[in-house]
Design a protein around this nucleic acid. Structure first.
Lengths: 194, 194
DNA sequence: ACTCCATGTAAATGAATACTTACAAAATAC
DNA sequence: GTATTTTGTAAGTATTCATTTACATGGAGT
């Protein structure tokens, strides 16, 4: 992906803020222009289309995910600790940047544009792979029971996180996501025990 | 909820079909009118608004869920068997009626209308309660390990189902949902063992 | 000073959308 | 059989949205 100009960065940042504030539906060119005090036409000097903006947002999330997950599994830390870190990081992250959840969980809106779906799937895959690596390690060190296939464990863990976040969003953010995340983590750790 | 006229039933059915075919975005009054060979105005003889139509759809899903779940837990069947039934029914159901998943998973679209969110939450609650009842039973009969709180187990199980369905939808329905559901079920059963 | 290009604006365009209105016909009631 | 209500139609309206167009401006390079 090409480097972003300052203006492009500003637009992307504003777009993410808009999504945080009013969910994905709040992201319109008009709102975007208003937010950075430009005209709508000016936006099109920097991005070809709205889909382009969304793609750029997804790319930036991918980058963040890659940075976070890159040396997650190689570190010399126990698998259970790694899972704890993963949980903590994610719930912290979603609580701080609801826009990410809003975008990643908005698959239904993207279904008219396959490129967007593909990029969301890539983000999911990044997380699945990191988690799969951790689980493999945990099985080897006998921290994690080996009677359950990796693939299913990955889906169970990610599904649990997602559902917790979904309920948080639907409730209008009316509970403490970090606290609920901690409870979920403890339960998952208990479940994984051999 | 008032009884539905024949015409209303026809409209709701067509609406659900539209959602199945092109996801929630495909549900427009124009498409709906075309599908049942009426004019758009005629639709408004039977429903006040589009939100009204969506609410009616959600009510019908609620009814279905209630019927299905009502005597789910009281039956004289083992908890693990009940969970198996629940899984089988759900994956079967989603595979047959993708519209349901499309609506229930479209929370992001509903966020501009709180009534819709509330009704989606009710459907989720119905399922959570049924599952909570099963788990409680299973703990009593020692079929399910009692070291993990009910609430978390419920979220883990529903989260696993939802994530499996989400990946199925994003993949363009390109894997066998029932088969993956079966694998997930086996893993969950294994996890729940005391 | 002149040119050129990047960046901006204001206003339009065109398409989609939910919904309304004025009127007609058909079913129902009496 | 006539009046009334229900259900339909055709053609709007109003709004929202992404995107385009014609034109302006300001700065960089020569």
């Amino acid at each position: 992906m090409a480097e972003l100009s300052e203006r492009q960065k500003q637009i992307i940042e504003a777009a993410i803020e808009l999504i945080s504030e009013k969910s994905i539906q709040g992201l319109t060119i008009k709102n975007l222009a208003k937010k950075i005090e430009l005209t709508e036409g000016a936006i099109y000097r920097h991005f070809d289309s709205k889909v382009d903006i969304l793609l750029t947002i997804l790319f930036s999330f991918q980058d963040e995910a890659k940075k976070m997950l890159n040396d997650f599994c190689v570190a010399d830390i126990s698998a259970l600790q790694l899972i704890e870190n993963l949980f903590q990081h994610h719930f912290e992250y979603f609580a701080k940047k609801p826009a990410v959840a809003s975008v990643i969980f908005s698959e239904s809106i993207f279904q008219n544009d396959n490129r967007l779906v593909v990029e969301v799937l890539k983000i999911l895959d990044l997380h699945e792979q990191a988690l799969a690596c951790i689980i493999k390690k945990g099985k080897q060190t006998n921290e994690i029971k080996s009677t359950i296939a990796e693939k299913e464990l990955v889906r169970i863990i990610i599904g649990s996180i997602r559902y917790t976040v979904t309920k948080w969003r639907l409730s209008g953010y009316d509970f403490d996501l970090r606290k609920e995340g901690k409870l979920m983590l403890e339960s998952i750790k208990e479940l994984l025990k051999p």
